[in-house]
């Protein structure tokens, strides 16, 4: 007789970690695969510190570029002068912590990496479980701060997308390349992902008990709630657009391809 777990004393002694007959492991396995690939790719790009600017485009991982030795054109290119590593490391922790503490991603990695639980009504392999009550996981309660920073970052990425409407050589307004569309789409998706955040939902109105006394905030809450219902979808889509946006810039900057231009002045 097991002493703990799902066959703890007193419970029905069934003796299987799950009796589910469907392929419940597909979802966590898929999540594990995709998130691992994302982390590996991102780490490579962030630490590499190169091929992140191909005028007029800047990679999402390198914006804002806060080191003085940033590539020409990657804004603002300062003020930190003493930094000697990849400039992405100065800012990439923001989206990283935002996503790490995101209520959706928490579900995703608790299930697929920690296997706590791997799927519903499937036993987890751990003997002990304390949830988010201790360090480091209790830090997830600070998700709202990562949200505030993510908002700032989104403003920067939006500026980048706008600047991508300029010509590569003389920065004239009136240019649309594939990269322009990708950067714009990425910024839009990131806004959807960020604004659909649960902390955002609480901040705009969720924490209010009397909606009827705050009609504007109620309206905002209603809109965010609608977005929030698709938070998972935006989390995945924006993950994809981030990789796409960076990889496209990488391909251009490393000279592997040239930008396809739809329109230019």
């Amino acid at each position: 007789m097991a002493t703990t777990g799902v066959d703890a004393p007193g419970r029905a002694q069934i003796g299987a970690s799950t009796l589910r007959t469907d392929r419940w492991w597909i979802q966590p396995a898929f999540t594990f695969g995709v998130l691992t690939a994302f982390v590996v790719y991102s780490a490579w790009r962030v630490f590499s510190g190169q091929y992140y600017y191909a005028s007029p485009y800047v990679s999402v991982y390198f914006s804002p570029c806060l080191a003085t030795d940033c590539a020409e054109g990657a804004l603002p290119g300062g003020p930190i002068s003493w930094w000697w590593l990849s400039p992405a490391l100065l800012t990439a922790w923001i989206p990283l912590t935002f996503r790490f503490s995101c209520y959706y991603y928490r579900k995703a990695y608790y299930r697929s990496f920690w296997m706590s639980p791997p799927a519903c009504a499937v036993s987890e392999p751990h003997g002990k479980y304390t949830g988010e009550r201790r360090l480091p996981l209790i830090m997830n309660n600070l998700h709202r701060y990562t949200f505030y920073l993510a908002l700032l970052l989104n403003i920067m990425l939006t500026i980048d997308a706008v600047l991508a409407f300029r010509t590569p050589n003389d920065y004239q307004w009136g240019y649309v390349g594939v990269g322009t569309l990708i950067l714009t789409a990425n910024a839009v998706c990131l806004w959807f992902y960020t604004l659909s955040c649960h902390s955002c939902r609480n901040a705009v109105g969720g924490r209010i008990t009397h909606f009827s006394k705050h009609p504007v905030r109620y309206k905002m809450w209603t809109v965010v709630s609608k977005l929030n219902a698709h938070h998972m979808m935006w989390a995945w889509i924006s993950l994809g657009t981030v990789v796409l946006a960076d990889f496209y810039v990488y391909l251009l900057a490393s000279g592997r391809i040239t930008d396809f231009v739809f329109f230019t002045v």
């Binding site: 209520y103 928490r106 579900k107 608790y110 299930r111 706590s116 639980p117 519903c120 009504a121 479980y129 304390t130 949830g131 988010e132 009550r133 996981l137 209790i138």
Partner: peptide, 15 residues
């Protein structure tokens, strides 16, 4: 009530 035990893995919602 141990709110911190919840790691929002959403099985409650699923079932």
């Amino acid at each position: 009530h141990g709110l911190g035990y919840c790691n929002i893995t959403k099985c409650c919602t699923e079932v």
